[in-house]
C-alpha cells in the first residue's frame, strides 16, 4: 500500500496566547493510493482545518504534508495546487454565480494551462458527461441548476484537471436523500473507474459505512481512532466512536439490533 499523501505531526493553532485555538493536534496519517478515506467527527473537531492545510489554503503551525513522498511547501506551486482538488458542501457558494457552468469547469484548465483552447472545450464537455450532466448545461448559470446538478458541476470541476487526489468536505450533506444516493454512487463509480483517491470528510456515519475503505475519527482536533471501515463499525475501540455510531437515526430492525448491541457493549466496558 503506497501512500499518496502523508501527514506527519500536523498541528494548527489559530490565534495566540489565552485565546489560541488548537484546532488540529499532532495528526499523523497516511492516505493510500486509490482508497476512500473518511474523516469523521463532530463540528469543530478540526476536519475543515485539516483539509485547508492539505490544500495549502492555510499554513500548518508545525508538521509536514507529503505528496507521493515529497514534502509540500507552505507556498504551493501551480503544479501542487493542481494535484489536490476540492469539492465542498455548498456548491452554490463555491461556484461563482457570474460564471457559466462551462466557464467554472474550464477555469482550472486555463489556470493550470492544460491543453490548448480546443482541447479545453472538449475536456469540459467530457467531464460534464462523466458526471452525468448534459454538456449543453455548460452555457447555464449555476443558479439555474438544482442542488444535485450543482454538486455534479463541482465534481466535474475537480475532475477536469486530472488530479488523483480529491478532498470532499461534506459533499452530500446539503442534498436530499434521493439526490444524495445518486451523487454518492457517482463518486464511487468515478473513483473506481479513474483510480482516484478520496479524502471524504463527513459527519454522516451511515454514508461512511457504505463508501469508505478506512475511517479516521477526530475529536477536538485529535485523531482518536483509525481503522478500516468494517472493523471500526463492528468493534469501535473508543466511547466517542461508539457514541457517534449510535447517534445515527436508523430505519430498519437490523439497524436497531446493531445499535442495541453497540450500546450494551458500551455499558459493559
Amino acid at each position: 500500500m503506497s501512500a499518496i499523501l502523508s501527514l506527519k505531526g500536523l498541528n494548527k493553532v489559530f490565534g495566540r496566547g489565552r485565546s489560541a485555538v488548537h484546532a488540529v493536534k499532532d495528526v499523523s496519517l497516511d492516505v493510500a493510493q486509490g482508497e476512500c478515506l473518511a474523516i469523521v467527527g463532530e463540528s469543530g473537531s478540526g476536519k475543515t482545518t485539516l483539509a485547508n492545510m492539505i490544500l495549502g489554503v492555510i499554513p500548518a503551525s508545525s508538521g509536514s504534508i507529503e505528496l507521493n513522498g515529497v514534502a509540500l511547501p507552505h507556498k504551493r506551486t501551480l503544479e501542487h495546487r493542481r494535484a489536490i482538488q476540492l469539492v465542498q458542501q455548498n456548491p452554490l457558494s463555491s461556484l461563482n454565480p457570474k460564471r457559466s457552468v462551462g466557464a467554472s469547469v474550464r477555469l482550472g484548465l486555463d489556470v493550470y494551462e492544460i491543453g490548448d483552447r480546443a482541447d479545453r472545450e472538449g475536456k469540459v464537455e467530457a467531464v460534464l458527461s462523466d458526471v452525468g450532466l448534459d454538456p449543453e448545461l455548460r452555457k447555464r448559470s449555476p443558479a439555474a441548476l438544482s442542488g444535485g446538478q450543482r454538486q455534479r458541476v463541482a465534481i466535474a470541476r475537480a475532475l477536469a484537471c486530472d488530479s488523483r487526489l480529491i478532498v470532499l468536505d461534506e459533499p452530500t450533506s446539503a442534498l436530499d436523500v434521493l439526490v444524495q444516493a445518486r451523487v454518492l454512487r457517482l463518486l464511487d463509480t468515478l473513483r473506481r473507474e479513474k483510480g482516484l483517491t478520496y479524502l471524504f470528510i463527513t459527519h454522516d456515519l451511515s454514508v461512511v459505512r457504505n463508501i469508505a475503505d478506512r475511517v479516521a475519527v477526530f475529536n477536538a482536533g485529535s485523531l482518536v481512532e483509525f481503522a478500516d471501515t468494517e472493523t471500526l463499525f463492528n468493534s469501535p475501540q473508543q466511547d466517542y466512536t461508539r457514541q457517534l455510531i449510535s447517534a445515527v437515526p436508523v430505519l430498519s430492525a437490523e439497524e436497531l439490533n446493531f445499535r442495541s448491541a453497540l450500546q450494551s457493549r458500551e455499558h459493559k466496558e
Binding site: 444535485g148 454518492l184 451511515s206 459505512r209 445515527v248 439497524e255
Partner: peptide, 30 residues
C-alpha cells in the same frame, strides 16, 4: 416503515444509506 405503500415512500426509504452497510443505495432515474 414496515410496509410502505407508495412508490415514493419506498424510494425515499431505499435511498437512505444503512449504518449496517449493504452498499450505496441504487436509485435509478434522475
Amino acid at each position: 416503515f414496515e410496509s410502505p405503500g407508495h412508490a415514493y415512500t419506498r424510494a425515499l426509504m431505499a435511498a437512505v444509506p444503512r449504518v449496517t452497510g449493504g452498499g450505496i443505495p441504487d436509485i435509478d432515474d434522475e
